[in-house]
Amino acid sequence: MSQSATTAGVRALMQDFSLEMTGKDVDALREAAPLIPQGSRVNVTFLGNEDLEMRVAAAKAVKELGFIPVPHISARRIHSEDELKEFLQALANVDAAQHVFAVGGDPAEPLGPYGSSLEMLQSGVFAEFGVKDVSIAGYPEGHPDISEEVLSRELSGKVEYLAEQDMSAVILTQFGFDTAPVAKWLDELAVKNISAPVRIGTPGPAGIRRLLNYAKRFGVGTSAGIVKKYGFSLTNLMGSAGPDKFLQDLAAETESTNYTGRVGVHFYTFGGMAKTAEWAQDFTKQF
């Protein structure tokens, strides 16, 4: 592949990248805001140690700073349909309900009526509150607790359901360190005639130990070969690493797949929002 094709591929990946924050990161977002392109999508997590007020305040801050809030809604953490409606109404009140990320969530047993994000979507509640665009989860390296068959069936079901409801779908993937599974997974989506925009989860720059700890926590592969491809060695865990090599490899891989939808990146800001935004700015200037 020519250098110009790789350059074009990297530019395409980095165009309109998105970022992730927790409900506690409002001050960090304000600090990073001058480094983030206006209109960028900023996802707001739905963690067990956050409450409705914190999540909504974070989504409101994203909107007020000139970005697009994408609040996460964790199906298995929702206790009732009334709680789901309360959250969506609170988001609508601050003009932050148009874009959401419907995700299954961590609890082994659902806390309420929704065992999966598909079940939550099929409740029909989302349209009542002006939701137009729904991000859904993709797992190029699989899921430690869900079979490949179920993942495939659920993803296809969500894409089909959203199309029926005239809502746009975005597939947002778990982060990883290796580009080969991503390319293989994109080709598998193409075979299923799925062409929704995909955002590939990418760890922002962070300490190597922290990156590996997150990888272990989320069941992402961290073999010596994979982390070497990412640009660091298991024998030297000092210092930090950025996804420069990962994204260049990803650009080359995605340009050779059969996937027809747009492919971009979503940054998990393990090393901090400002550090990630500054890195993205500097990295993009190279191309």
Rank of each mutant, 00 (worst) to 15 (best):
M54E: 09
A5E: 15
P197K: 11
G272I: 10
N213M: 07
I68C: 05
W279Q: 04
A57P: 06
A169D: 07
Q122T: 05
T6W: 15
F287A: 12
E188S: 08
A280P: 11
V220P: 01
K275V: 09
E160Y: 05
L172S: 09
D82V: 11
R77Y: 05
G130S: 07
E81L: 14
L189E: 05
I194D: 01
G176L: 05
K60T: 11
K228G: 00
Y114A: 01
I146D: 12
A57M: 10
L186D: 09
L111S: 12
G48I: 06
E278R: 13
R30L: 06
R153I: 08
D145E: 15
A59T: 10
P69M: 15
V198P: 05
V26A: 14
T179Q: 00
Q3S: 13
L88V: 14
L19F: 12
A61T: 14
F218I: 07
A196M: 12
G201E: 00
D16W: 10
A57H: 10
S152E: 11
G39M: 08
G225F: 00
D244M: 00
E53M: 12
F270H: 09
K158I: 11
S135Y: 11
Y114T: 02
D16S: 14
K85Q: 12
P34K: 12
E20Y: 08
M167L: 08
N236Q: 14
T6A: 15
H143G: 05
I194W: 02
I226E: 00
F17H: 10
L162D: 06
L121A: 05
G142R: 06
L234K: 07
N193L: 02
V103Y: 00
Q38M: 11
P203W: 02
G264S: 15
A196R: 10
R55P: 08
F101M: 13
Q165I: 02
D95E: 12
E149G: 04
Y139V: 03
Q281S: 12
N49T: 07
S147D: 11
Q98C: 04
E141R: 01
E109K: 15
L155M: 11
D282C: 07
R55H: 09
S74M: 07
G225N: 03
A190E: 01
A137M: 01
S152M: 04
H266G: 01
Q122K: 15
A196E: 12
E154G: 06
A274R: 09
W279H: 06
T235M: 12
D133Y: 06
K63C: 09
T235C: 03
G272D: 09
K285M: 11
N213H: 06
F67R: 02
A32W: 06
S116R: 00
F126R: 03
E188D: 03
